[in-house]
């Protein structure tokens, strides 16, 4: 099959939806001839023109509210926030407006907006350009939160996000942008709320999110040589969460490791771990639920410090050995 990058897959999903539906458009900073900070919108202004590929001033408070207001009145905007860290400046419109309008108005409004958020560490951008704050968004009723780990999922999830009538926060990992994967050209959607078993196994269930899915897969290959058979589950969307797929896996393997890049304390992995602990799968556990997450420090600049701040393949391997008492 054809291989394209994660960023090409996202662009293809957006372009297909923009061809299918005139109400879909994209707005954001430097997304015109510049192509966006990560080149993701390269070529889009040439195809769709400046009305539908709207370059905005550096005004996150206005452009986020503008996207929400446009969504409430019949458009289906995609808002590119240049780095996910900048969402703090747009927070009121996401949390107080987009998430709550439908409920506050007694079910009358719908807010079909997709907010694209390049996140994660590893690129040397330091503390204000490398965070993973998706857990904040999962806490807010009314929002959906998506976190694709590969090109195929990114395309299908983006198409589903654009078609969804709710605000969807779409967390892209900037280190995954150049990573290639098999992606069919034809149109397909991956429903929000459907996890994927990336590798089946019998000894340990690793529930990993975002780029940690890729690291868990590397760790799983390594552990295979030691006779440890790991199952890797990618929830793909954090809200709604496919609890069923996770719990079935836990019941099968009896051991679970949750891996996420965000600061471990208060991260979404804590929610996944609690969900498992509160369920009937608890009785199947042969070991305490383990979590691996980022350290409680801002993301540092120095490359070695930066790596040490978030889980790496070796950390996952070590944690799995511990779980197997090896």
């Amino acid at each position: 099959m054809r291989e394209i990058t994660y960023s090409e897959a996202i662009r293809e999903a957006m372009s297909q939806e923009m061809r299918n539906n005139q109400d879909v458009f994209i707005m954001g900073e430097d997304i015109g001839v510049y192509g966006g900070a990560f080149g993701l919108t390269n070529g889009m202004i040439e195809e769709f023109g400046p009305e539908r590929v709207r370059i905005t001033p550096i005004s996150e408070a206005a452009i986020s509210g503008c996207a929400v207001g446009a969504a409430m009145t019949g458009m289906r905007p995609i808002l590119e926030i240049q780095f996910s860290d900048f969402i703090m400046i747009a927070m009121d419109n996401i949390v107080n407006q987009a998430a709550k309008n439908r409920y506050m108005f007694g079910g009358k409004a719908k807010v079909p907006v997709v907010v694209r958020l390049p996140g994660g560490s590893g690129a040397g951008f330091a503390a204000q350009h490398s965070q993973s704050l998706e857990a904040w968004m999962t806490h807010v009723p009314g929002l959906k939160v998506v976190q694709p780990s590969n090109a195929y999922d990114a395309k299908g999830l983006m198409k589903a996000a654009i078609k969804d009538d709710n605000p969807v926060l779409f967390y892209e990992h900037k280190m995954l942008y150049p990573v290639k994967g098999e992606v069919p050209e034809e149109e397909y959607e991956i429903p929000l709320g459907k996890a994927d078993i990336k590798k089946s196994g019998t000894d340990i269930s690793i529930v990993a999110t975002g780029i940690m899915v890729n690291r868990a897969m590397e760790a799983a290959a390594e552990l295979e040589n030691e006779g440890i058979n790991v199952e890797v589950i990618d929830p793909r969307t954090l809200v709604p969460l496919d609890t069923e797929t996770i719990l079935e896996s836990v019941k099968k393997t009896s051991r679970v490791l949750v891996v996420y890049e965000a600061v471990k304390r208060g991260g979404y992995g804590a929610e996944i771990a609690s969900m498992i602990a509160e369920s009937d799968a608890f009785d199947y556990l042969d070991a305490p639920i383990r979590r691996l997450g980022g350290v409680a420090a801002p993301i540092p600049y120095n490359p070695e410090l930066e790596k040490a701040a978030v889980p790496q393949v070796n950390d996952i391997i070590k944690e799995c050995r511990k779980l197997m008492n090896k």
Binding site: A61, S64, G65, C66, A70, T73, M75, Q97, M104
Partner: peptide, 25 residues
């Protein structure tokens, strides 16, 4: 009526977006 709002000034970005819809459509 796109809504009263509990957040001071929040209606301005929203109204700007509603005006964008009017223009684009």
């Amino acid at each position: 009526n796109l809504g009263a709002n509990g957040i001071v000034c929040a209606g301005l970005p929203l109204g700007t977006g509603a005006a964008l819809t009017s223009k684009m459509k």
